[in-house]
Nucleic acid binder design. Structure first.
Lengths: 229, 229
DNA sequence: CAAATAGTGTCTTTGAGACACTATCGT
DNA sequence: ACGATAGTGTCTCAAAGACACTATTTG
C-alpha cells in the first residue's frame, strides 16, 4: 500500500495492521418511459457471480476520478449517453452484498427521454435492454446482487420526488405537449390526474411555442419547452 | 495507458493487486438543540492533516462491518450514544477532499436531544464540543476537509425534511410540551409559527399525558409523548 | 393585582379536487 | 356530422394563515 501507517489514523485509533479496504463501485438506475410504462435499463451478466442474470450497469470507481466522473464515464461507455440528468440515490454497504468480496456501491438515479436513450442504444453495440420496473418489482424476475432492492428504492425516490420537483421533464424531449407531461406524471405517481388541475399547477414551469403536433385524428396539441428559472 | 484501468468491467476478474482502492469512511453530523440554537458536535483534530482544526467525528469502515455498524460503533465509542436516530445523508467522493489519499466518505445525519447528548458527554472523557451551526456556516470557523460543506448540506436536509417528516421529535426528550416542540420546529425552519395553526397540524402526532410542567411563573404546560403509528 | 406563557375559537385566504363545458383535428 | 383528444371556466372543499380571545401559574 502506498499510504503509510500513520496516515491511516484518520480521526480514529484504527488498527491499520489488519486494514483491508472495500472496493467502491457506482451503479446506475437509468429510467425512462416507454409505452406508458416506467422502464429500467439492465444488462445481462456474462460471468460469475450471478451469471446470466440481469444487473444494473455499473463500474468500479478509479482512484483518480470522482464519483460523478465514474457515473459519466459509465453512462457514456455503456449506454452512449452524455449530459443527462442524474443524482446520487443511496450508498449500499452490506458486507455480503457481493458474495466474492466487500463492495460498497454508490447508486445513482439517471433519467432520460426514450427518444434519446433509444438513439444511443441504436448507435452502440449493446447487451442491455429496457425492462418494466413494475414487472421487475413484482418478483417475476430475479436480479443480481441487491439490485432488485436498489430499483425498488429508486422507484420510491422518483414517486416521492415528482411531487415537489420538476424531474418529469427529464423523461421528455426538449419540446413536448402538456398531455405528454401529464401522462409522465401519472405514470410516476401511479394515479390519474385531472387535466385542468394539472395544467394550473405546472403552467408556470413551461413556456409555450408556436408549434403544434399534427397528423392525428383529433385536435393538435401545442408544444411547450421547459422554463428554466 | 490509463484507460485500461478505467475500462475494467464491472465485477469482472477484478484483481485488487493491480488497481488501487479508495478508502471508505463514515462521517457523522450529530445535531442537537441547545439554547435555542441548532448545534453540531465537532472534535478537535490532534494530528495532520488539518491539525488543531475542527472536524466531524468519523471512522474508517472495516472490511467486515456494514456502513450502519460503522456509524453505531462510532456513535458509541466517540460520543457514548446508543440507539439514536440516524440516516444516510450523502456520499462525498472528490478526489482531493483528503490531501493525503483518496477517501470516500459516507456521511450520516444523527439527531439527539440535548439531555441525552449531554449525559453521554458527561460520562465520557471527550475531546469534542457543540458548536452553533449558524456560526460555523457564516464562515467564522474553518473546518477540516470538506466538512463545512457537509454541515451545510445537513442543514439543508434538516430544514427541508422537517416540513414533511417527524424528525423534530428526535431532538426532544420522550416527554415534551407543545411549546417545546413548536420551538424546535421554528429553529429548524428558521421562522416563527402561529401557535394555534401549529397545534392543529401536529396534534394527531402526539398523545397527551396527565403530567404538567411546574415551577415557572406562568401557566403550566401539558406534557405529551410522541404517537408512533 | 400584573406579568408571563399556555391554550382555543374562528374568520380569511389559498390551493387542490371535481366536473362540465368548448375547441379543433381526421375521416 | 362524428369520434377523439386538446384545452378552459368555475364550483366545492380542506388545509394553511392570521388574529383575537380565554386560562392558569408565580410573585
Amino acid at each position: 500500500m502506498v499510504e503509510s501507517n500513520k496516515d491511516m489514523q484518520y480521526l480514529d485509533n484504527y488498527d491499520s495492521s489488519i486494514y483491508k479496504k472495500p472496493s467502491v463501485t457506482v451503479d446506475l438506475i437509468i429510467l425512462t418511459i416507454f409505452e406508458n410504462k416506467l422502464m429500467v435499463y439492465l444488462v445481462n451478466r456474462d460471468q460469475s457471480p450471478f451469471i446470466n442474470m440481469l444487473a444494473l450497469p455499473g463500474s468500479f470507481v478509479s482512484i483518480d476520478e470522482t464519483l460523478e466522473e465514474a457515473v459519466e464515464r459509465c453512462l457514456e461507455r455503456k449506454v452512449g449517453l452524455k449530459n443527462i440528468y442524474f443524482e446520487q440515490l443511496f450508498t449500499w454497504g452490506d458486507v455480503k452484498r457481493d458474495p466474492r468480496m466487500r463492495i460498497i456501491s454508490v447508486s445513482y438515479l439517471a433519467l432520460v427521454s426514450f427518444e434519446m436513450l433509444n438513439k444511443s442504444l441504436g448507435e452502440q453495440g449493446i447487451n442491455g435492454h429496457l425492462f418494466s420496473v413494475e414487472e421487475i418489482l413484482s418478483k417475476r424476475i430475479n436480479l443480481a446482487f441487491d439490485h432488485g432492492e436498489i430499483i425498488k428504492y429508486a422507484r420510491e425516490r422518483v414517486t416521492n420526488k415528482v411531487e415537489y420537483s420538476p424531474i418529469a421533464f427529464e423523461l421528455l424531449p426538449d419540446k413536448f405537449t402538456l398531455p405528454q407531461l401529464q401522462r409522465i406524471n401519472e405514470i410516476l405517481l401511479g394515479k390519474d390526474l385531472y387535466k385542468a388541475n394539472f395544467r394550473k399547477k405546472i403552467i408556470d414551469q413551461v413556456i409555450e411555442t408556436n408549434e403544434f403536433t399534427s397528423g392525428e385524428n383529433h385536435r393538435p396539441s401545442k408544444l411547450y419547452v421547459r422554463r428554466m428559472n
